[in-house]
Nucleic acid binder design. Structure first.
Length: 147
DNA sequence: GCCAACGTTGGC
DNA sequence: GCCAACGTTGGC
């Protein structure tokens, strides 16, 4: 899962009470579908810092609540407000994630691009701007091992 | 700040 | 349903 550290970084998650945050504001159908259908309780997730000086994987978190309506879409004062989503027919979903650990170093996008083993990763493929992407068990183990 | 790559919107 | 215009993402 990507987040811009200027907006919400892994240390912001660390500082949350219970170290839990709801992953609101995602307004992309593919990403929503993953939170709605694919992400299950206890699933581990990489935290990726995007749109910053050194983009890359910075830590690990865990799904502690499965997909449910993103209430930030209902609030006209919220920057992620969407009039087409209402509580009766919520369009956008989110999950809750909990801090697990911060990696000892940033595994940078530049480094990730260098491994043939990761060539199939959605993150690596050119032009992929999804904010939530799948990681295969092999890719997960590989990245943990180089971290 | 630039710009390529996407996703969304809306006229037709 | 097509597709041009537009907005956004995010690396660089």
């Amino acid at each position: 899962m990507k987040s811009e550290p200027d907006t919400f970084s892994i240390s912001d998650l660390y500082k949350k009470s219970n170290q839990i945050e709801h992953w609101d504001g995602v307004r992309n159908y593919q990403a929503r579908n993953m939170m709605r259908d694919a992400m299950k309780l206890g699933d581990q997730v990489f935290f990726y810092h995007s749109n910053c000086a050194v983009p890359g994987i910075v830590g690990i978190m865990e799904v502690v609540k499965e997909g449910y309506p993103d209430f930030s879409a209902f609030d006209p004062d919220d920057p992620h407000f969407d009039a087409k989503s209402d509580p009766a027919h919520p369009r956008w979903m989110m999950v809750d994630v909990k801090y697990v650990k911060t990696l000892c170093r940033i595994i940078t996008l530049q480094e990730l691009k260098g491994y043939p083993e990761l060539a199939d990763m959605a993150l690596i493929r050119r032009g992929n701007r999804l904010s939530i992407m799948p990681v295969s068990p092999y890719q997960w183990a590989f990245i943990l091992a180089i971290g």
